[in-house]
Write a protein that binds this DNA or RNA. Sequence first.
DNA 1: CTGAAAGCGCTTACAG
DNA 2: CTGAAAGCGCTTACAG
Lengths: 352, 352
Amino acid sequence: MTEDERTPGRPHVTLQDVARRAGVSLATASRVLNGTTQVRADLRERVLAASGELAYTPNAHAQALAGSSSMAIGVICHDVSDPYFASIARGVMRTAAEHGLMVMLASTFRDPAREIEYIAMLRAQRARAILLIGSGFEDRDWERSMGAELEHYQRAGGRVAVVSRHRTLKADAVLPQNREGAAELARTLVGLGHRDFAVLTGPRLLTTVADRLGGFADALAEAGIELPEDRVIEAGFTRDGGYAAAERLLNGGDLPTCVFAVTDVMAIGALAAFRDHGVDVPGQVSLAGFDDIPIVRDLTPPLTTVALPLDLMGERVMELAVREPASRRSRVERIKGEVVLRSSTAAPRQRR
Amino acid sequence: MTEDERTPGRPHVTLQDVARRAGVSLATASRVLNGTTQVRADLRERVLAASGELAYTPNAHAQALAGSSSMAIGVICHDVSDPYFASIARGVMRTAAEHGLMVMLASTFRDPAREIEYIAMLRAQRARAILLIGSGFEDRDWERSMGAELEHYQRAGGRVAVVSRHRTLKADAVLPQNREGAAELARTLVGLGHRDFAVLTGPRLLTTVADRLGGFADALAEAGIELPEDRVIEAGFTRDGGYAAAERLLNGGDLPTCVFAVTDVMAIGALAAFRDHGVDVPGQVSLAGFDDIPIVRDLTPPLTTVALPLDLMGERVMELAVREPASRRSRVERIKGEVVLRSSTAAPRQRR
DNA sequence: CTGAAAGCGCTTACAG
DNA sequence: CTGAAAGCGCTTACAG
């Protein structure tokens, strides 16, 4: 493409330029290039040739404005650098690519103001769908404002899909079975001989935390094992939170025989704290996480966890957002977690 | 907002609706909302009120089309789930948010066709800038096609900025000092007493691999230490590649006293392979990586590496893309790596 | 300071 | 099948 082949003064080649060079009307050029209607073969050829010669790239904004269709999907997460999100994102990106969609990504760092702001931006972009990846809040205010913002978006034709439970959001959802997975893990650990547990958690307002903690505690209760409140240690929902929680546990006097961190990321921090304080895992204390992010296989010891097919969950949530719903009801896809025993857990030392 | 407050049949509230409700012209409403010109206070008030009452959201496509300005930045990486990218992305996202920009993300999995395709899509979106995160190729063909595509974009006013060296791309760049960092690491390891090395690398066509390997080998040579070709083991540029490379090393007969994996991600794989084969690190072999991704602190043993300020690099590359250049010359920001000694390296056992 | 109007680059009924 | 024209929702010279 050289300067004089396009309309002078314009930085981009337009459909008009292509049509002119091909000797057809704007309409015909448009029809050839997005193949809706039949066009006579020779005209078709000429348009294609002209488009190629001029290296024509359609203006997505003009297309969106004229056709009111956008190829953009908004994806909102808490932190791009969290490996849990990163694994899900892999599936999201792959599936987006397969559908020729662009992903607009936003990190909110759990700042509600930022979440609202991003939804407004995505509304402005006329994103075709918005994906919320990660735990919701058990919080009336947060829910109300998010809900209002999203409904607004949905009324204008936008689609919303989420990974993880959001109490009242009316949206398609991929739901990891957090309660069931945590319960199954508890039963497995009890089966190993453990009777004395602690749980390291993030803020209990997060639905994911509430579900995993609840499922774990309930299963223990069914086995006749109590989880005293002072054995539930709440900290940041991060690696450093796990580290801090484990340190608080260590300072709290006698250790339990088994610790459950509600996410692998927190478990990584806990493992580091145990190592730094000379506590052997699983010799002195067993440790388990949840999620099965890829790295936990490479820890020493490799981490027992509840495996979630994260990549697949990303794929599914994107597909929910893209596929037209058969009915008006929200679709729900439940994802089962599978307990994976690795060397970070063992039978307790002085059993009996 | 209720149905009858906006133009019937339209899903979105438009500026026209706002203007009508405020009793002003389209132009005035526009001026109030993007604050270019002065507008009389009372009109201003009325427009703001109307906009709020109708929950008006501007149509970004119409804005982009009319003003030919887009708030979107394209970010192209190889794999969103790679922790190296994830850390850089954190800085990118934060900086984007500070500037009110949206990030359109693309994963290419190093597929050249996909890279080209994404650049075309970003061109269609009239993205304000494109960020290439990750190593370039020492490959004429790849370079030619990428170069052509990007120049095309740049001629139309697009900005391009990269992290890592791309031989001939005319773009602003954040350049980690791979050669120097690897050389410094080599000197440090030699200082520890090592004389017998192996290097685990990704494809040597990647500029990052070439630079780190080259810097390491040169520094060894300066110390009078040879790095035989069969001590350079090439594999995939991933965790599994590192694992495979380490296994090949183990099968190759006598172990070196020290192994350098050109990225932390490969080092993680190597560490797992050593563990699986009962090779003690650093007892039998020392291991070092490069990048200092967050997780390597939590490995056992924690990994010696060359630390790069990844988050900061993300911030910088975004700022290069956003700030107007003073001259037409490409700007280059060099980033120094710092050797961080952790427990994965030690003096060799049977020294002397 | 304010408004009428042109124009951004497309798509898509509507006639032919 | 093809083309002239209206319209998508804004911004911004250009007059007043």
